[in-house]
Design a protein around this nucleic acid. Structure first.
Lengths: 133, 133, 133, 133
DNA sequence: GTGGTCTAGACCACG
DNA sequence: GTGGTCTAGACCACT
């Protein structure tokens, strides 16, 4: 279900964070849903358990999941943790980074537009009415 | 002309690479244009000469600039160095990271669309209809 | 300068986070100040370098410090990263936790009041005009 | 009467311990008052009986309750089990953690003072002038 | 079984 | 030298 790509420039734990965050954001994983245990996911991805634990820790810090010792890890109900200023700051910096990453690949703005629209379209499908809180 | 920000999370050499790549991609620097020498740029930015050399090396490896011995460093005429497969892989990976970063901030696909359009619009201005090759 | 207490119920990395956060909040460490390197602090506290790195990572995630590879770790200029709702939520939960931790120690509300006032007084001294942003 | 919250980061047995300790400290449960049996409380909270037993064991070890075989579990008359040094150490440690948690949220000492006073006020109401021993 | 913490030691990226 | 990532393996707390 989750995929780790060795060619990907992102570190492993980051790929895990991104992958799970995406699943939660698109509603594939709903609030209350249980995630695979640290050890189970580590085994499945054939990475070290600490690496998965680190990814889970980051998602926990971001308020996207909650863990209960001896029980498991669960998707938490979404809330707005960041200030509006900070949200915008992060959007801007992510956008800047994204453009910096791809600009030297020689894609034209039109091509980039197309690909982003595709991706957003895929998001919208599984994501018909985003909760506001 | 080029700016190094200490607060920027990117390493210095990366900021240089991105800055120059952006200038080339947007047409501010045209093929054949001369870049400052390694030493001159290092002085101007008050960074280590090795750092500038590393940035130039990366840009050279990407085929965006070329140095002519004893003459200087110049923007090269655009060539496609990466395979289409590789370019697409990198675009996908950058896109996934971007969306993962952004989506957990609670922005709706519509909002993201708007912001990306803004940014692309800013790009298109300095970039009327470049290369399709 | 920083102290790790073996009897302390908090894990080591938490004690480091708390200690540094306190120093930043009270102005003992000012924005831009450099923190000891991961390895240096690990040596000084005779703990593993990974433990210090974990503490620094948490402070970084909280936006209190910034690290630059190959350079060092620095106190960042404070900003308001969390939404007001989230700030209040966290204040409440910290308060609840604090009271739960100490209530069974047999201190009366008056004693608790006194001790908290002492601590707040110490904060106010080094902290005469808290910046708002 | 006692509440277990699944979202609470504390383990269940801890929530039980804290909840009962709080009731005793605030005088809601007076010395000699009878507590529900392990099984009864487990049923009521729909948790495992072992979990309740563990909570009762900890409260017993702390001298806050005592069980009389074949009769039931009762709130004991308060005794000081921890040394003053140990109590103070724990208070300091809890205080440090609390302030570290809170101060990085950007609350001013004045705001913190206010909120702590509120919370202590709520405590004092059910706690007119208990033990100074 | 679950997650959390810590250690030891390796390798990489950066300046 | 700096910080960041990953592994391997240990121990603890909780259910």
């Amino acid at each position: 279900m989750l995929q780790i790509a060795t060619g990907d420039p992102r570190p492993i734990f980051r790929q895990i964070v991104d992958g799970i965050a995406m699943k939660i954001a698109t509603g594939v994983l709903e609030p209350g849903a249980r995630l695979p245990s640290v050890r189970a996911l580590a085994m499945q991805l054939t990475v070290n358990a600490n690496t998965v634990a680190k990814a889970y820790a980051e998602l926990t810090a971001q308020g996207m999941i909650e863990s209960r010792k001896g029980v498991g890890v669960f998707v938490s109900t979404p809330r707005q943790t960041l200030s509006d200023i900070e949200r915008n700051r992060r959007l801007e910096s992510a956008l800047e980074r994204f453009l910096a990453d791809i600009i030297s690949l020689g894609f034209s703005p039109e091509e980039i537009h197309e690909r982003v629209e595709d991706a957003l379209g895929r998001l919208r499908e599984n994501h018909p009415s985003r909760r506001k809180d």
